[in-house]
Design a protein around this nucleic acid. Sequence first.
DNA 1: ACAAAGCCTGCAATCGTTTACAAGGAAAAT
DNA 2: ATTTTCCTTGTAAACGATTGCAGGCTTTGT
Lengths: 335, 335
Amino acid sequence: MDRKTATIQDVARVAGVSTATVSRTLSKPLVVAKATREAVLTAVAETGYRVNATASNLRRQRTGTVIVLLPNIANSFFAQILAGLASVLTPAEYGMLIADTQSGPDADQRLAHYLASGQADGLVLLDGTLSPEVLATPARPPIVVACEWMGADLPSVRVENARGAALAVGHLLRLGHTRIGHVTGPPANVLTETRLDGFRSALHSVGLPLREDWILEGDFSMESGAAAAHLWLRAKDRPTALFLSSDEMAAGFMGEVQRAGLRVPEDVSVVGFDNIEIARHLAPALTTIRQPRTVIGVRAAELLLDMIETGTRDGPSELIKVELIPRGSSGPPSV
Amino acid sequence: MDRKTATIQDVARVAGVSTATVSRTLSKPLVVAKATREAVLTAVAETGYRVNATASNLRRQRTGTVIVLLPNIANSFFAQILAGLASVLTPAEYGMLIADTQSGPDADQRLAHYLASGQADGLVLLDGTLSPEVLATPARPPIVVACEWMGADLPSVRVENARGAALAVGHLLRLGHTRIGHVTGPPANVLTETRLDGFRSALHSVGLPLREDWILEGDFSMESGAAAAHLWLRAKDRPTALFLSSDEMAAGFMGEVQRAGLRVPEDVSVVGFDNIEIARHLAPALTTIRQPRTVIGVRAAELLLDMIETGTRDGPSELIKVELIPRGSSGPPSV
DNA sequence: ACAAAGCCTGCAATCGTTTACAAGGAAAAT
DNA sequence: ATTTTCCTTGTAAACGATTGCAGGCTTTGT
């Protein structure tokens, strides 16, 4: 046990072989003779050798890192996707470099920077608001998009957003609602649009007219859900049910409505989207559309690793299923 | 614009200087003459050169990475600390390697592995359940502990947990409660014990007896808060107020109590700990103890960077202040 | 005008691995 | 017995940057 960490040289000396043999023993054990292999492994154990990832990466022209670009780490939605990513990347010896697109100044430029910098073997994109033009970079690393995005033909892991919206509306219709409103996500976002489209066409398909004044603009945050509640409370002619594009908004909405003395679902039915953990613990428990966040992360990571290893920049796209979870926040309209 | 990324050699050639000069221009611009400096910078811009972090790290005998060990990324509490860490580490050109101690098998062993592997220039410890003995590793990198931990004398960023508990109890006492219960965190955790101690001594200092049957065991999760609610609902002789060791538990508790038809704070006052984002959006809004999570991350990162740069393994410890946020979930007892 | 001091810059070694290539020896084929 | 083939192993050249050392050219001092 030396002061410093042992290097491959030390192992080679102890085992009485060349560094090449040590390296081979560790990476492709099959090509070295059994006797030497064992000698090397003993020496490794004895010296406590661990391969220096930096040197290895330099030589192998890789970085051992994938960059994850997301709008906001603090958001539990992304945190859970991260957990999924980590569960695949960590065992594969890849580190995650997390880049928060909201904290810095110009997100598009940051993306371009990461693409060009060669700081990563791959990139996971969780922010749908970035502009697709940046991808024009030559020699960019493989990218997997794990959210709705305008950049058309990248390998991606997506969620049945439109169908989710349709499920939500269908549920409310079945309960007897005909006056259904919607609170959207932030304007630029594709999630917003896809869910809004799903909402629109679900209403359309049963012949219900679309009341534009019942479509409120939010931004996925609880804050904006609460704001929507204020608008709703003040409105003269209000919908009896609302589909909100995120659970956080739904929670904010319900809280505000209840603090104003009205009741859910008696006075208004509420359906969210995401099935965040707290959804079932709210009072009333929140009806919502479940999307398996960890799975999204896992699949995205698997896709990316595959692309990195095969050296391709194209890959399949995957669609993750969603599911309606009916709970207490939705009920029949009280005429 | 070549296919491949430009290397320092390319820049040197274009600028008509040696690679040494290019390197110096970029790292210590002051020592190179103004004219050459400008020539180099022009060449850099022209070639689109970006320094290869791997090569630089290898030569400088560092990794450019800090490892963050935490129990669970998906937990929004940690996610927010992460955001704080990232906001300091990313600009300083350090990557974060996130290691989830819950996902793997033996967390202690993983910690030991990370310490020995030399994979990181520093380590942030967010998991208080790891055993302190592992630190005995010689030549370990600097560590900052950003949570309560038994390992005594490491540099740390801590929160006034005991005082927080005292604030919570004091608040309930002032409202007139004398029958106050507590829901703890998981048994092994130091957070649990510190807050429990704070709770105990706050009661003790005003001469209230301690009812052991009013101390329920939780684990910080909403689930366990809901379970505590069941116990509370079933109890014959129940407290009129509860201090729960986390907001998530408080949310789970409130939800369950309300779904059972009782009301907060009329039937039971609830105080949480953390001030998670949803706290103010619940109905009623949750009274809680605020701890600034982002700040914890920021300070921990700053401390760690300082230790890394000065090469020391000791450093100051910091205590982050907490604050009572009174909201609707606590009120006078209804006799 | 000459020596001393100061600025810049280049040379070349180094960080720790990986991996083409070649070479040595043993086994198999002729 | 000689040639061919196969299996293992070693040699040495990268990978791309940083930096101690030394040398050349100015500047300053006397």
